[in-house]
């Protein structure tokens, strides 16, 4: 019998379909259908070896239910602590929703290319996200705060439906107080306690000053936000080479082999999920590509 613990270290040639066992060590309910689970590899050696970059994702596996692609949402400088923020939408995420602390899930990854850490040096960084789209950007926020000297201004624009739907609400408050980062949150529907802005997230652009040439933009949200968000920065004359968008597709293998996540010439799992706008501009506006 071979246990995955005994399998060789990931390198060219091993069979990538075997999931690694990871145990759920903590669960935080973010809103009515979204939870953040903390995972750690059951195997100590695997735990120590696991490295990843902000924006990458894992395939989480529940035996006999299936796999789902979930981005890693914790701090990449502490790579052993793996947080995944999961909204319940399908059978795998529903199965994970029912799992208590101590349960074991399968994990393959990390996959994808992640956010362009190299591109931000000496630039302003503006992150725009909506709903669950904050989860893939959270590691980027951590990274920027950890390496604050790398770039100039850091702005996070976040939109969600109601104040109750905000992910990482406590952390957003903390970041709000933090002088190193500007956080603006807007909601579609305000409650009586809400004193912040109301409306779509692109409206927040009126509240900040974007020095177009010197700004790197990262957008992550539902499809409509990706489009409108990216375009609104282009209208502000941010060069298309400095606009990055994180896309969502159906994924099955994670390494560009199964064909599901193709986006024009790209495999979203392998070449993305983060794309530079200038690399995909010819298909970005097209439907059903």
């Amino acid at each position: 019998m071979i246990t995955p613990a005994a399998r060789p270290e990931p390198h060219c040639g091993h069979d990538t379909w075997y999931p690694l066992a990871a145990r759920i060590t903590n669960v935080v309910q973010e809103n009515f259908n979204t939870r953040t689970i903390t995972l750690e590899m059951v195997d100590q050696a695997q735990r120590n070896d696991y490295q990843w970059r902000p924006g990458q994702f894992n395939m989480l596996y529940v035996p006999s239910v299936g796999e789902a692609a979930i981005s890693i949402s914790s701090d990449s400088d502490k790579p052993q602590v793996l947080e995944h923020t999961i909204r319940t939408v399908g059978s795998v995420t529903r199965a994970i929703e029912h799992m208590p602390v101590g349960s074991v899930v399968g994990l393959r990854g990390p996959f994808g290319e992640g956010w362009p850490i190299e591109a931000i040096e000496g630039k302003d960084v503006v992150m725009m996200c909506g709903g669950i789209g904050l989860a893939p950007l959270r590691p980027m926020v951590y990274w920027l705060l950890n390496h604050r000297e790398m770039c100039r201004r850091v702005v996070l624009l976040y939109g969600c439906r109601t104040p109750e739907d905000r992910l990482y609400a406590d952390e957003l408050e903390q970041w709000h107080e933090d002088p190193r980062i500007d956080v603006l949150v807007t909601v579609d529907n305000a409650t009586s306690q809400w004193v912040g802005p109301v409306g779509v997230v692109t409206n927040l652009l009126r509240r900040i000053k974007v020095s177009a040439r010197e700004t790197v933009v990262m957008v992550c949200g539902p499809r409509i936000l990706n489009r409108v968000g990216a375009w609104s920065f282009l209208q502000l004359h941010v060069p298309p080479e400095q606009v990055y968008v994180s896309l969502e597709r159906n994924m099955n293998c994670g390494f560009g082999r199964c064909g599901h996540c193709q986006y024009g010439p790209k495999f979203v799992c392998r070449d993305g999920p983060v794309f530079r706008y200038s690399d995909i501009h010819d298909i970005f506006a097209k439907e059903e590509v």
């Binding site: 006999s64 239910v65 399908g90 059978s91 795998v92 529903r94």
Partner: peptide
């Protein structure tokens, strides 16, 4: 039947 028991699609 199996998928209903296991909670998968």
């Amino acid at each position: 039947i199996t998928s209903l028991l296991k909670g998968r699609k």
